[in-house]
Design a protein around this nucleic acid. Structure first.
Lengths: 144, 144
DNA sequence: TCAATTATGATAGTGATTATCATATTCAAC
DNA sequence: GTTGAATATGATAATCACTATCATAATTGA
């Protein structure tokens, strides 16, 4: 089963907020963690239903919101269409290179860019909390 | 009225695509150009109606799509909610600092970050076409 | 065990956008 | 100018991704 750390994070979050535990949330969390992809709510719903067919899509949306609030997940908005969710806890920060042809995207990181962003924000007297950098282009495969 | 250059760009684009001219598109383009804000389709629709009350929202959406395709405008997606459109032609590329408290955003640019992005893309054998960098934080005003 | 509170699933509602379609306009060829 | 084929338009229905509502169920502290 594993994912003990992540489960503890959610449990603690639930406790702090005065919420209650539920099996559905646990099912959703574990399915989310097990799947190393950027899933949409709909896709996660389809996967969770295999384990728990009684689950409703509303609960998936509600749980994804909790996961984001507790720092376990993060939203990813690539153009129009559904929001995708990526693992956040224990994953190094990264940005995305998105292929405009095939839609594939890969994760990259550049510490220098991060540093420059801080500098840029400081110049405007902004307290930087985070950022999303999407780079669009054509990937190796699609260049042929 | 001015905006001759921009009008020519749209005219050329329309001609190249074998489309036809229309007064509505001209009204929408001019209202868009005149307003130095990041408007949503809805907001632009409200403004254009003052000049041409008969216009329909669908035409505003259709025209904004054309403006983006012709390089006159660019989409801006800040979290959920409607897409906003910014002027693109003749405007230097820039990124955005978004305040998570008041929603205000300011435009910034750092040539070094741009350069590093190119390097990052090249490392992955990506042909970079563009990017969107959103930095979230708290602005000077909201820090109090 | 009980009572208060939160969670759930079904489904209605919403907001932004897109598709449809009948009618109107544009524009190149005559 | 008139015509006719193609595109544009406005009204509105449809769609998509959520979000709110609500009756019922599960959780949890007393």
């Amino acid at each position: 089963m594993a994912f003990d750390e992540e489960q503890k994070i959610l449990d603690d979050f639930v406790r702090e907020k005065g919420l209650k535990h539920s099996g559905q949330r646990k099912d959703i969390l574990l399915t989310f963690l097990k799947t190393e992809k950027h899933l949409s709510a709909d896709e996660l719903y389809a996967l969770v239903k295999k384990k728990n067919p009684a689950i409703g899509i509303a609960t998936v949306y509600r749980t994804l919101k909790l996961l984001c609030e507790s720092g376990l997940s993060s939203e990813l908005r690539l153009g129009s269409g559904a929001v995708r969710y990526e693992h956040f806890y224990g994953h190094e920060h990264h940005d995305h290179l998105v292929c405009v042809k095939c839609g594939e995207f890969i994760e990259v990181v550049d510490p220098e860019i991060e540093k420059l962003q801080e500098r840029l924000a400081a110049k405007e007297d902004f307290s930087l909390q985070g950022h999303k950098l999407l780079m669009y282009g054509i990937c190796r495969k699609c260049k042929g």
